[in-house]
Design a protein around this nucleic acid. Structure first.
Lengths: 371, 371
DNA sequence: TTGTAGGCGTTATCAA
DNA sequence: TTGATAACGCCTACAA
């Protein structure tokens, strides 16, 4: 009979052997090699510790043979770190695909994985404020219940509703590091922010159009609940001031009625000779509207977009557009969350603005004639 | 002094109170309400059990106040089910975005979440077989180490290399349910499959072009390592047989040298009057090549694509393309993995083919003249 | 150098 | 109706 100290573990093992469900654990390796679980654990973690060479060899061999893989869930509940970062993104175009790539690459390089959930993307779904809030809340709980180490968020349209902030509060009150992309959150959430230098973007567009000789501008602005849309608009308008005789009419366009807004603006008299569309999607609407009015781009109307999506080069004529750096934005956002998570979210939140470039294509030219 | 039975737990609690890291657990609620952990657990799970109404009320109140959220990681290590499904996708276009939406929606409806990782997507990365294999393997381990309940895979180009199958074997030997999309795996993996009815797709395209009067065809086939590419090609070629005088030249195009292949095929004499491109991306290359040769679409050349991506409608002229059902494919794939996972992967693998439609646009017309 | 005990947050199983 | 206890698979301390 074994001595007392061994009895306890021996009994345990005997019991477990039967109920095992397939994947080998430390215990099975311990049994097969005749050493204790603790020893196996130490060897497999490859800590700088002292182990008899043949013990190590034997353990490694059996582990390989059994296809042992550590269970990160267990480590997670012990360490309090799951290595999972919640990512909530909008329905996507090529811009967001790049952002996701950036996030993905940076996270995996740091041994983390993204838990990607979508903000409402179904055209068919009920979009009432209430159901939207519920749905977003459910998504946030999905992440919290799995104990994500941090979250990267996109500013869903729901930021419109004050109640929505309480969803984000679910994260911030639990001290989960947050980084938002493109939209800056209220300071109370202590959230970091990665965005685009909209002042620079606006200035580049303004300078380009002014240098072509334009003086009457129109701006299709994004919905002003998004901080990027506000900054983009201001950046453009302020940069126009260098030309005292420049005028600009800005209208905020909501996706659903973009056509109508575009039509109204393009029917102004005198008509603007150049348009800065807040996004390439809006620029596309602008193209369609221009076509309906019989305007030829760029002869009658110069158009500049923003985002430099795939469509920019597919449009006819190819669209001049502000090139942002979505991949880099994703990377930076990921780097920031991971770092905050490592420091128990005690680092102060930071804001980061990435520079832009203007991608010149053929949707811009000098105005037909001066007024 | 408390009686002996209580002593043990009481001591434990006293110790833990200090080291708690923020998020409330059952224990804290138990302390605050004066009941045992077990009771709290039962109430919060809301099982059909008998609890004193006031006990329940008190517990629920405290739980809400503390913002209690269950820790799914713990449930996972106990139940052996994490509720996470690994999803490995290629760099994406609108087709894959739809697939992801479908997967996401179906999974969340079943209280699961997707763990989305990318198959190599970086143009800059070293693409040697070895490093590619390593990278994919790392991705697979990331999923396994977090104990995914199942996996939805896209057939990465790496299926080319025999060694790559050993990566997938890492999943199948562990009895993790697998569903592949678009590419059918070797039977040994017992993997399920969701794809498109390529025979139907090919037949629709063939019928359409034949009815327009075409007899000389060209087919830009996808790389024949992909089962979808093989089936799509065969589907098209076989459907052409209804016209005894129809001829078809098929070439397999690799992305990198697509232009060259396209140029060669379009330089055949007599030149084909209609092209079926295996993907819309290839169709786009075809457009460019045709332009270089001074061919006008559809006057000199009819072109049909497949996938009905966003670009199809942006191309000039808009591309006639086979419409697949990516969203549905995603949903079905998700449903299938979840179901297999629930049955310990004991259900037999299934194959599912979804029907297609032909989206008629203006890239096809009758041939200019009969030979 | 190796083994054992205790704990992570929860569930399930008895016992009270 | 409620409480205590043993898992789940692993890691950290401490003991041998």
């Amino acid at each position: 009979m074994p001595s007392k100290p061994m009895l306890n573990q021996t009994r345990k093992r005997a019991r477990r052997q039967s109920g095992s469900n397939g994947m080998a654990g430390l215990e099975r390796i311990a049994d097969r090699t005749g050493v204790s679980i603790g020893t196996v654990s130490r060897i497999l973690r490859d800590k700088p510790i002292r182990v008899a060479p043949d013990t190590r060899a034997k353990v490694l061999e059996v582990a390989a043979e059994l296809g042992y893989r550590p269970n990160l869930l267990v480590r997670a509940i012990q360490s309090g770190k799951t290595g999972m970062i919640g990512v909530m993104v909008p329905p996507f175009d090529s811009y967001w695909a790049q952002v996701l790539y950036g996030i993905h690459d940076c996270l995996t390089e740091h041994d983390h994985v993204p838990l990607v959930l979508w903000a409402e993307h179904q055209p068919g779904r009920d979009k009432s404020p209430v159901s939207e809030r519920r749905e977003d809340l459910a998504q946030i709980y999905r992440m919290i219940d799995r104990r994500i180490d941090g979250a990267i968020l996109w500013p869903f349209p729901a930021v419109l509703y004050a109640e929505h902030m309480s969803n984000i509060a679910e994260l911030s009150t639990r001290n989960i590091p947050i980084v938002t992309i493109d939209h800056e959150l209220d300071p109370q959430h202590k959230a970091s922010f990665v965005g685009t230098d909209e002042a620079m973007a606006g200035a580049m567009v303004a300078r380009h159009l002014l240098s072509l000789g334009h003086r009457r501008f129109g701006h299709f602005a994004g919905r002003q609940v998004h901080s990027w849309a506000v900054a983009r608009r201001r950046g453009f308008e302020e940069a126009l001031r260098v030309a005292p005789d420049a005028t600009c009419i800005s209208v905020e366009v909501a996706d659903e009625v973009a056509e109508i807004h575009a039509m109204q603006l393009l029917n102004q008299k005198p008509r603007p000779t150049a348009i800065f569309a807040a996004t390439d999607h809006i620029a596309e609407v602008c193209y369609r509207t221009a076509a309906q009015l019989g305007l030829v781009i760029p002869r009658d109307l110069s158009v500049v977009g923003c985002g430099n999506l795939d469509i920019a080069s597919w449009l006819n004529p190819p669209l001049t557009s502000v090139r942002q750096q979505p991949y880099l934005m994703g990377r930076r956002a990921a780097e920031i969350v991971v770092e905050r998570s490592r420091h128990a979210n005690n680092l102060p939140p930071i804001k980061e603005l990435l520079p832009t470039m203007l991608e010149l294509r053929s949707s811009t030219s000098a105005p037909l004639m001066s007024p």
